[in-house]
Computed example of a mutant assay.
Amino acid sequence: MSAAKEELGDSRAVRRFDRYILSQLLTLFGFFALVLVSVYWVNRAVVLFDTLIASGQNVSVFFELTVLSLPNVIRIVLPVSVFAAAVYAINRLSSESELTVMQATGFSPWRLARPVFFFGMIVAVMMSILTHFLVPASLSELTSRQKEITENVTARLLTEGSFLHPTNGVTFYIREIAPDGVLRDVFLSDQRTDDHTTTYTAEEAYLVQDESGPKLVMVNGLAQVHTLTNDSLITTNFSDFSYDISALVDIDATQRLRLEHLSTYRLLFDSHSVAEELETKRGWVVYEGNARIAQALIVIVFPLVGFAMLLLGGFSRFGVWPQILIAFVLLVGLETMKGAVSDPVGDDPNMWPLTYLPALTGCVLVGLLLQLSARPIRFRRKAAS
């Protein structure tokens, strides 16, 4: 009976140890993810803010678009966050001799890796939710909203009393917009060519929409062409003139459907029709679907590589940076391998198993590192002999 109670007490202590390490990993993961997402998101938000404000949009549109871009930002920084959290947590536990005590009680490296594996599984579930559901839905909605904003020429160009720059080299000005939609005293300068500048001024103008895109019809105006090579000026009076402004709003760039917008089910089980719809190779469709699954698997490998590498290096208060650097280089190698297998799969969809090669290589690497950590003396003896 006493032996059974002692064994039960040991198992409870082991479970508490697992929960303790797991809580440390999750806490640090939340911190690193928050910091990295904030940095990455702020950098992108500044560019988006300048673009939207220059286009005449309000702040609510800015917040809407930044929220829609957030899932993809989280997906990008998640692997880095999970690796940083694992390395920091394991290094702190080893420096405080907590892992040393557990090893002294008979814990093998494989057993110590269990909470790290559970940690990787939890983050892999998060990554799966992002890659299969949140990111495609948010990117699709983001493209739809950008399309609406781009096609809304009124929001981009119809702002009276302000000089607008809808694209590089173009300046647009309207003195007044009448209640019936007539634009009065219009100024348009086109400096997109190197050899000449064209300036249009008109008493009135109208925005019309046809099959080829939006047009600006100017009435009773003057066109001035300034040739820079010989410094000459040619002026032409016109009673009405149509100017194509579709190039200023770049509608085609936002209307284009991409693989990132589609569901994983369509990518894997309806790849032929998707390839025809997007006019791309079927291999790239298959690769995108399998890459989403592989992303979740590689997230499990990242913390285990950091853990195994620190465990192999020993539990010293100094000298862990070489192990961290080696672990980082190994992960960069796995990411490089992921990019290397994309082209073969893109050319031949039957090569789709190569998509999982980086995750499989990472698992083998973790196994080797943990095996070396479990038998370091035998390894040194073999090396000495």
Rank of each mutant, 00 (worst) to 15 (best):
E211Q: 09
H272R: 11
N220H: 06
S212G: 09
S273E: 07
L268K: 11
T229P: 03
E276G: 01
E260I: 12
T236A: 13
E203V: 07
I245N: 15
S271M: 03
A253I: 12
T280V: 03
N220F: 04
N237Y: 11
S242V: 12
H226C: 07
I293S: 14
D250A: 04
N220Y: 08
I298L: 13
L278C: 02
G213E: 03
L248K: 06
I251F: 05
L268S: 03
K215G: 04
R256F: 04
T229H: 12
H226N: 12
V301A: 07
F269K: 11
K281T: 05
V249P: 08
D250M: 14
K281H: 08
N290H: 15
M218Q: 11
L278R: 01
E203D: 10
S271I: 01
E277W: 01
S242D: 06
I245W: 02
G213W: 00
Y287R: 08
V301M: 03
L262G: 05
D244V: 03
L297G: 02
P214L: 01
E204Q: 14
L248G: 05
A223C: 08
V274H: 06
G221L: 11
L278H: 01
D252R: 12
L207V: 05
D244G: 04
Y287M: 09
S246M: 07
L222M: 05
F241P: 09
V285K: 04
Q224N: 09
R282H: 08
D210W: 00
V299M: 10
H226T: 14
H272S: 14
R266S: 09
G213K: 00
A253P: 04
R266P: 12
R292A: 04
R256Y: 02
Q224E: 14
R258P: 05
L228C: 05
H226S: 09
S263T: 09
E279L: 05
D270K: 06
D270E: 15
T254I: 04
S246T: 05
I251T: 15
L262S: 10
S273M: 06
E276Q: 14
Y206R: 13
N290I: 07
T229N: 10
L207C: 11
D210S: 13
T227V: 11
V225I: 15
S239R: 06
T236M: 13
S246L: 04
T229R: 13
R292K: 15
I245K: 02
R292W: 00
Q224P: 03
D252W: 03
V219K: 08
E276A: 15
V301H: 00
I234L: 15
D240G: 08
W284E: 11
